[in-house]
Design a protein around this nucleic acid. Structure first.
Length: 445
DNA sequence: TTTTGAGTTGTTCGA
DNA sequence: GTCGAACAACTCAAA
């Protein structure tokens, strides 16, 4: 009787999993394992941890209760698992983040002659493998996407009908208690919920995705980000279901953005916390704690911004359109360095993904690949009027403005009686700060 | 090596 | 209200 270990990290599913197939082929029985790694847990924030626990519960049930959950550093846990179970190989889906790469190297060394076998990755194209003709990495999305469409994998791996799971005789610590969520409401976690969400999105929202995706008041986006983050489903599975309509192609390209940013981070691990474009490091920033707190708490006096920041605190998620607007506000209206906003997002988002988050912020800040031109500054009022014309999104998240009529909801300072009680006055003047941002960008050119 | 066309998501202003 | 131009120049990708 031979055993193989399936060490799960951010691939918490059974369908379309090449690593699972490899583990099954390598042994008579498979020991599913998750390591509770403090290095990853500490910065995660309560919503992300709770969501992860939900994914683990789902997986525990579906592996007939064999999933082992062990705390500790992976480089000590894995060798111990090998000693205690006698397993002959460890199977993973490769991780391409800065920490994951180093961790896996340490584990590989610690396992000595037991192979750590990486099969597949959480992306349609494994980071680092799609390069230009001369072998250098892409720095612009569109040509990357063109190449991706030629070479990306769209067909899912087969899903085994039955896997012989084993607990390997290991004692499991079980899934830790959920942290206090303080009223945050999360969707159901795990693979089954993810597939259900995908079906619902395809039926209801995908056909009108081109317009619907910019309407934060409605469920026009897939809301699959957290499921993708933890690998409850693989993007391949999604690509395989997509057709050639404009809406399907637009959605596919959103998935390709995810691959692109993982690729950028793979080539430049330092760009998770520093400007990808070193030439922008000379940009002057401010760092006013009171202004930052007003932004973080959703009390800037700009309703569309405040609605977004409160949605983040309320749902551990924010609509993508609004992410751009609030990020632009922090960087270009408050002149705060993007990493401070990115850290806040990572702490509060249930989908917080290092590559997408860091490079999404850098796109807004103008310091990243394909960066927005410096003169592109979002106007929080215009964005609100354009994308939340009825004000439903603002009224949902900013109760102080629930009774404000019409377009005043996006510019309550124009109300005859002034800003409603309890709602803050604008903390800065957008017109003036836009001009200031343009001055600062001009100073580094 | 040189050349050419192009580059996620915006805003403002003036005709 | 609608529309096109200006906002700048630079870098990237590929022929």
């Amino acid at each position: 009787m031979s055993l193989s270990v399936l060490w799960l990290r951010r691939d918490l599913r059974l369908a379309d999993s090449p690593a699972l197939l490899a583990a099954r082929d390598a042994g008579d029985e498979v020991v599913p394992l998750f390591v509770l790694d403090d290095v990853l847990r500490r910065p995660a924030g309560a919503p992300r941890l709770a969501f992860l626990h939900g994914c683990l519960r789902d997986l525990y049930e579906r592996t007939d209760g064999r999933l082992r959950i062990l705390p500790g550093r992976p480089e000590t846990v894995l060798p111990r698992v090998i000693r205690e179970t006698g397993a002959t190989s460890v199977h993973i889906s490769s991780d391409h983040g800065p920490y994951g790469r180093e961790r896996d190297e340490r584990v590989r060394r610690a396992l000595d002659d037991v192979p750590l076998v990486a099969t597949g990755s959480p992306y349609g194209v494994t980071p680092g493998t799609l390069t230009k003709a001369d072998g250098s990495p892409y720095k612009v999305f569109t040509p990357y996407a063109r190449a991706w469409r030629e070479r990306g994998i769209r067909s899912p791996a087969t899903t085994p009908r039955k896997v012989a799971w084993s607990d390997g005789g290991l004692r499991s610590d079980g899934i830790p208690a959920d942290p206090d969520l303080g009223g945050v409401r999360l969707p159901a976690a795990g693979e089954r919920a993810a597939l259900q969400r995908w079906r619902t999105f395809r039926e209801r929202a995908l056909p009108s995705y081109d317009e619907g995706r910019n309407r934060p008041a409605t469920a026009g986006t897939s809301e699959l980000s957290a499921y993708l983050k933890y690998g409850c489903l693989h993007p391949r599975t999604l690509h395989a279901d997509l057709g050639d309509s404009d809406a399907d192609r637009t959605f596919a390209s959103e998935l390709i953005w995810r691959d692109f940013y993982a690729d950028v981070l793979w080539h430049r691990p330092d760009s998770a916390r520093r400007d990808w474009n070193a030439a922008m490091a000379a940009l002057p920033y401010d760092d006013d704690d009171a202004l930052f707190e007003a932004w973080a708490q959703g009390r800037t006096g700009y309703p569309f911004v405040d609605a977004g920041m409160r949605q983040l605190l309320g749902e551990a998620w924010m609509h993508n359109r609004v992410r751009m607007v609030v990020a632009s506000f922090l960087v270009k209206d408050l002149h705060v360095y993007w990493t401070r906003g990115a850290r806040h997002f990572m702490r509060h988002l249930r989908d917080g993904d290092l590559a997408s988050n860091s490079h999404g912020w850098q796109w807004v800040a103008g310091t990243g690949t394909d960066a927005a031109p410096y003169f592109r500054v979002f106007n929080p009022v215009k964005q609100g009027l354009d994308h939340d014309p009825d004000g439903d999104y603002v009224r949902r998240w900013v109760p102080e403005l629930r009774d404000v009529p019409g377009r005043f909801v996006h510019e309550p300072w124009k109300l005859p009686g002034g800003v409603p009680k309890n709602y803050p006055e604008r903390i800065v003047d957008h017109g003036a700060e836009r001009a200031e941002a343009l001055r600062r960008y001009a100073s580094v050119r």
